[in-house]
Write a protein that binds this DNA or RNA. Sequence first.
DNA 1: CAGATAATTGAGATTTAATCTCAATTACGA
DNA 2: TCGTAATTGAGATTAAATCTCAATTATCTG
Lengths: 144, 144
Amino acid sequence: MKKKTAHEQFIAYLRSEGKNITPERLHILDAVLNQKAHFKIDDMIEKMSCAKKRVSRATVYRSIKTIENAGLIKYIRSINDEKIYEVQKEHHDHMICESCGKIFEFHDKDLETLQDLICESHGFTPKRHTMKIFGICEKCKKDD
Amino acid sequence: MKKKTAHEQFIAYLRSEGKNITPERLHILDAVLNQKAHFKIDDMIEKMSCAKKRVSRATVYRSIKTIENAGLIKYIRSINDEKIYEVQKEHHDHMICESCGKIFEFHDKDLETLQDLICESHGFTPKRHTMKIFGICEKCKKDD
DNA sequence: CAGATAATTGAGATTTAATCTCAATTACGA
DNA sequence: TCGTAATTGAGATTAAATCTCAATTATCTG
Ligand SMILES: [Mn+2]
Ligand SMILES: [Mn+2]
Ligand SMILES: [Zn+2]
Ligand SMILES: [Zn+2]
């Protein structure tokens, strides 16, 4: 069986919540999916105010939150406390370079397993987590 | 040799930065240190507006930032996106209960070591990190 | 497809945490 | 003690995010 596209997932989510499927919501979803991994909400607002079909600021805020609740994007924060959303792929964690600001994604199965074990030993049932490692990336070390 | 108190560390920091040692700054530091681990900036503003020596809102914001730069407190965020500061003790990570909102601190040496290894394998030099695990705590599971 | 109903939208108003302004005060080195 | 630069307080300002509400639109039912 085929894996559902983000578009299909969103529609399914809207249906399940009794929310209407509006062109505004679908437009914003498309813009979000065409974005590279990380984006700021202001980028979206600007993008949507120039597009053929323009969408208001209030609706961008509202829809971004809806898309987030649908699990298709996630709210993260970069080093300078900037508010950034990211399109959800498989789970991953972040390394953030304090020199160039670049965000690197990584995934380590052992790390995830160890986290689960630690939670278990504390009687805590983990649902999700975020981990951000701040430091200096390989490139910035060389350029130094 | 004795370990420096937070108070001494703060004074040393102010000196090293050529900043003045003012009663307002020391007052706010004291209030912060008397706080239990986690606090909101509004608590501080209120506390400082009732104290014998009252301190203005602007100065609370300014000094909290100074104390943060001195490394004595750290800015974290809880589940509902509330802005919370915490007094810095040894490094630790967080488990946050999505049911009761309680924040649990933990430290696991193996986890830290593994993180360093992963960074190394990516050519990334880690300076600091944050890790938050969201889920359900032991007590909330029972009360269910 | 038409009509009823509830959800959604847009534009501008509003909220509110955080920052800024600047005159008055204070800390500090000489 | 004095001169200078840093800091403070009170209120003004900023700006992201939310709210308001009349007009529009999606969806359901027959
Ligand atoms: Mn992870
Ligand atoms: Mn850690
Ligand atoms: Zn870098
Ligand atoms: Zn709990």
